[in-house]
Amino acid sequence: MTDKPAPAVPPAFVPDWGVTPCPRPVVPAATPERTAAMMDGVRMRENPAEWAFVRLSKLIEDFEKGLDKDEEVGARIVGLPGDGAMSIEDVGFWGPDFIMFLGRNADGKPVRLIQHYGQINVMLDVRKRPEEREARRIGFQLSELVRKTNPE
């Protein structure tokens, strides 16, 4: 018998970060260029809420590329009252486990949805922009935050 401890093996739920910057999204209709754009500058994160936020921001940015100048991103989120619809103004996270959606409900009142990163179910949809302002594109703003916080 030996007193040597067995090598540490991470639990099955801990990913092997390896040298790959980010797993590729699997979107059957996506061109290689579109897939590369979604992955541009993204590095994996150890904080699960931050990692969910990083990928969510890229998916929002990709969705917004298909909108016209009078449309902006909205969402239908399971668990919200009524039809579960809100206009998304911002997305954030508080690691290790919360993702936050900030926006307005159908009545224009502020809403903040705080969800565990493992419980996110968001259907992005299209909203007509309010007449008094230009359409907002939050995906670019979120991607800038991702770029600024990328691990070295």
Rank of each mutant, 00 (worst) to 15 (best):
P10M: 04
R136Y: 01
G74T: 09
Y117Q: 04
L145Q: 12
D62G: 07
R43A: 13
P48H: 14
T149I: 06
V26F: 10
E134M: 13
E131I: 11
T149G: 08
G84R: 14
P21Q: 12
L80D: 00
G118V: 07
V111A: 06
V73P: 03
F13V: 13
G18C: 06
V73A: 12
M100W: 06
D16I: 06
M38E: 07
G95H: 11
P21A: 13
D62T: 09
V126W: 05
E134R: 15
L80K: 00
R55C: 04
G108D: 08
A12Q: 06
K148A: 15
I60V: 15
P15I: 12
R34D: 03
W94E: 05
F63E: 00
L124F: 10
I88L: 14
V73F: 04
K128W: 05
V73D: 00
A29P: 01
P28C: 01
D70E: 11
N105M: 09
E131A: 15
T35W: 09
P81H: 03
P110A: 02
R127E: 08
P15W: 08
G74L: 04
F101Y: 05
E64R: 13
I88H: 06
K148C: 02
P96S: 04
P48D: 05
E72K: 11
P96L: 01
G18H: 07
P110E: 05
V91N: 02
V54H: 10
D90H: 11
A135P: 12
D90E: 10
R136W: 01
P96K: 05
I138P: 10
K69A: 14
R24N: 09
A30C: 08
K69S: 06
T31M: 04
P28A: 09
D97T: 09
W94K: 14
E144T: 08
A37E: 08
A135H: 06
I99C: 03
E144Q: 14
G84K: 14
P25E: 09
V78N: 00
P11E: 12
D16V: 13
F63C: 03
E46G: 14
C22Y: 00
V126I: 14
M39Y: 00
E46C: 08
Y117C: 10
F140Q: 05
P48R: 15
P11S: 13
P10C: 01
M100D: 03
G82M: 10
K58I: 00
D97A: 12
M39T: 03
N105P: 06
F101A: 00
A135T: 08
V126N: 01
A85R: 15
I60S: 02
I114Y: 03
A37K: 11
A75P: 02
V27R: 11
K109M: 11
G103Y: 05
M86R: 10
R104C: 03
E50K: 15
R104M: 10
D62E: 14
G82E: 12
A49D: 01
K65P: 00
G103T: 07
I114H: 03
R127N: 10
L59Y: 04
Q141N: 04
